[in-house]
Nucleic acid binder design. Structure first.
Lengths: 123, 123
DNA sequence: CTTCGTTATATTCAGAAAAACATAACGACG
DNA sequence: CGTCGTTATGTTTTTCTGAATATAACGAAG
């Protein structure tokens, strides 16, 4: 889910996550599909979970991120607001900036990492 | 738990978290107390959970982060290795670097955030 | 050889989180 | 006014996590 190797970054409001890689991807998919349920399907996520994430996003910001319509042509749908699009762009820019800023440090740490788990050590 | 306002950052090995703010604090407390159980107490965490985190840390890196001794003087104890100390320092340096690199972007986002939850929006 | 405090580990319990399932509401459109 | 696909929401079930509890192992020190 992390878009940058070795790094997972979330922006917090107070102390709960306002946006992270998952929500960003979800909003991007809602933008391209025009539907929460289609985006959820593409992410292999239940519609309910996706809807809850959208609800949390809208609750975290003073402007709506996703607007929904129920009923009507094609049953309804969802559109990402200009702010929502901007939010995803900014989050990705932040990921990119942070990733670049600490890339060499992460690489240094990763040279000390192992892939598979290992048995605990004793003195 | 996040040491930097508005930001939570974890370093991943493959796709599971190798170190984040919680593990870093735990290792620092083990270093200052010389005991997993004392560190756990200070963090309000069960000994078992703390032990599992230490196990995960040691499994994530090619060098041990915490070495433990069972029995003996004072019942045993745990010491943070030089690498472990370095790991915590480097993680905090990474947090600091990333936080500085994206501080203004985070502030811009935070100006669009609200503290309390809000009802969902309709089109 | 008993005591002591810690590490190590299994087991059990409770609560939270997630998933699964079900169903209602909705409005355009034929 | 029935159909359709979607949003919205309730209910139930399952899974996961964490906490709590219990106990063994250990080795220094008295």
């Amino acid at each position: 889910m992390a878009r940058y190797p070795g790094l997972m970054l979330r922006i917090l409001a107070e102390d709960h996550p306002a946006i992270g890689p998952g929500k960003a991807q979800l909003v991007a998919l809602i933008d391209s599909t025009g539907s929460i349920s289609a985006a959820a399907r593409e992410m292999g996520m239940s519609y309910r979970r996706a809807w809850q994430l959208v609800e949390a996003l809208n609750a975290s910001f003073i402007e709506p991120v996703v607007m929904t319509a129920v009923g009507g042509k094609r049953g309804g749908g969802a559109v990402v607001t200009a702010f929502g699009r901007e939010l995803v762009q900014q989050f990705r820019a932040i990921e990119d900036k942070a990733s670049k800023a600490i890339a060499t440090d992460i690489e240094r740490l990763q040279r000390r990492m192992r892939k598979p788990p290992r048995a605990p050590q004793r003195q």
